[in-house]
């Protein structure tokens, strides 16, 4: 597994070039592949680019969409900003918790879902809003959320 990681990251370095500017696209590809940035991957990236691991971690931890802790396959981000809050985003959270049994900040045991709050998704006129992976969902109701999640359970 580890050697596979190394090979994968080495290929990424070939693709993007072995300089510091390649760090972000490489981190993004690792995210796509493994859903989060594990320690080994960050160390391997540091080696490939000849930069320090702290540097990799500093960059990775800065961005909301790069995770340094283990995440589920599908990451649900519910907007917590004021408009969605007024449009009862808490009902959405409760509906998700009821269906898949996790609170914000947690991941399901089967590794399928993680739930997080996020800041403004720019869909204030269609709140409450959430994002699953890269897909936005708006004008949510508890019922609508259930249908959406069921469709992801099958994926």
């Amino acid at each position: 597994m580890i050697s596979n990681n190394e090979e994968f990251i080495s290929q990424l370095a070939d693709k993007y070039g072995r300089n510091r500017e390649s760090l972000l696209p490489m981190l993004q590809e690792v995210m796509d592949q493994f859903y989060y940035l594990n320690e080994d991957c960050m160390i391997t990236i540091a080696k490939e680019l000849d930069i320090s691991t702290a540097d990799v971690y500093g960059t990775a931890s800065f961005y909301s969409f790069l995770d340094t802790n283990e995440q589920g396959k599908h990451v649900i981000r519910v907007c917590q900003t004021i408009i969605c809050d007024m449009k009862r985003k808490e009902d959405i959270i409760d509906a998700i918790t009821e269906l898949i049994g996790i609170k914000p900040g947690e991941t399901t045991h089967d590794g399928k879902f993680s739930l997080h709050y996020t800041n403004c998704l720019g869909a204030c006129h269609k709140g409450p809003a959430m994002l699953i992976n890269d897909e936005p969902y708006t004008e949510l109701t508890p019922e609508k959320v259930k249908d959406i999640l069921v469709s992801y359970m099958k994926k």
Binding site: E39, D55, Y57, S61
Partner: peptide, 28 residues
């Protein structure tokens, strides 16, 4: 030229950190 320290996270959560907040004795 060691880079044992970095600024991790952002905004009010920003902090001076080592790689994955490991203890100083374990990093470079």
């Amino acid at each position: 030229g060691v880079n044992a320290l970095t600024m991790a996270n952002k905004g009010n959560l920003a902090k001076m950190s080592t790689f994955k907040e490991k203890p100083m004795a374990e990093v470079v």
